[in-house]
Every structure is written in structure tokens, then in C-alpha cells.
């Protein structure tokens, strides 16, 4: 599998093709339902965000608490479609990568192409393997949301499939 380093560069994004397997290493942010809703409320109210999306990759996930001796507990992807109503707005702000599971809406697919971004599919239900690929976890924002808070993860050889590439090729629409 191709090794990909995060944060993503435009060249890296250009080189990715839907359907190919990749091993991601570097740093990512987490965010799921409640964090997305709150971020968009901040934007609606013109409030400054506690972190920047520019050049970032977001992982749609809410981890299990870390057992002793581990950086993170089980942490596989959640269903990306629930974040579809928020994603184009974040892509317009400079978000470059998304990691989750399952198909995306047409609006998100178009926004991926428009913003030269990429969507990776992690394997749902493989939480223990993904938890072990997380080497460090730091709380970034919204601690009251518990597992739904925004964390920064350092990941190493995190296996994914390129699901939607920057040219709009889509692994879910091949069948």
C-alpha cells in the first residue's frame, strides 16, 4: 500500500486515485456530529474557531477511552454521511482531507473536486486496529462533548482506501 504523509500537500492529493489502498501517517483532527454542529454555530455567529481547518484532515470518529499503556482506545470511523451537511462549508475553509466510512452526498463530492481535496474510507468495525495506529492523542476543543470532542491524533500507518479523489472518481459509484 502507498504511504501517505499528513498534512496533505496539493501534489499528494493529485497523486491519489479512488480505489487504491493507502497507509496514512502524520496528524489529523477528530470531529463528529456534535463538534460539527458547534463549529458551524461558531461560524454562523462570526465567532473565532478554537483551531484552524487550513490544510487539515478530519477523522469522523469518537474514540473509546484509552486503556492503560495506550494512547487511545478503540477508534474506528463513524458514518460520514451524517457530516455531509457540514462538510462543504469546512472544505471551503481549507479542509483538505476527510476520513470516515460510507458514501457522501453529491454536494460533498462536488465540493471535494472544487476544493482539490480527498475523502478516505477507513474500514468500519476495525476500531481496535485503528486505536493501535494512534500514537498520541491531545484534546483540542470542546471537552464537554467527551468522546465527541475534537482531538488531535498522531497516526502511523493508518490503513484506508481512497474513496473519492480530487478528480471526482468515486469508489462507491463503480458498482
Amino acid at each position: 500500500m502507498k504511504k501517505v504523509t499528513l498534512p496533505l500537500t496539493d501534489e499528494t492529493i493529485e497523486s491519489l486515485t479512488a480505489g487504491e489502498g493507502v497507509l496514512l501517517s502524520g496528524t489529523i483532527l477528530t470531529g463528529r456530529d456534535c463538534a460539527h454542529k458547534r463549529i458551524c454555530e461558531f461560524l454562523d455567529q462570526g465567532k473565532a474557531l478554537p483551531f484552524s481547518f487550513v490544510g487539515e484532515t478530519i477523522y469522523y470518529a469518537g474514540p473509546c477511552p484509552a486503556p492503560e499503556g495506550k494512547a487511545c482506545g478503540s477508534c474506528g470511523p463513524t458514518t460520514s454521511a451524517r457530516m455531509d451537511s457540514f462538510a462543504p462549508r469546512l472544505l471551503d475553509l481549507g479542509l483538505k482531507g476527510m476520513i470516515g466510512k460510507g458514501e457522501r452526498s453529491d454536494e460533498v463530492c462536488k465540493s471535494i473536486v472544487k476544493n482539490h481535496a480527498v475523502y478516505f474510507a477507513a474500514i468500519g468495525g476495525a476500531g481496535a486496529l485503528y486505536g493501535n495506529a494512534i500514537r498520541k492523542s491531545t484534546l483540542v476543543a470542546f471537552p464537554d462533548l467527551l468522546s465527541e470532542a475534537v482531538y488531535r491524533f498522531e497516526i502511523s500507518d493508518f490503513p484506508c482506501i481512497v474513496a473519492i479523489d480530487c478528480h471526482g472518481n468515486n469508489v462507491y459509484k463503480k458498482a
Partner: peptide
């Protein structure tokens, strides 16, 4: 993953 979860006593899925 199922194998790792059982061996390391981690939740199969988060």
C-alpha cells in the same frame, strides 16, 4: 481486528 480486540482486550468497535 477481531483477533486484535480479543487478544488485547480492546473494544471490537469504538
Amino acid at each position: 481486528n477481531a483477533d486484535t480486540a480479543a487478544k488485547e482486550k480492546m473494544a471490537v468497535c469504538q
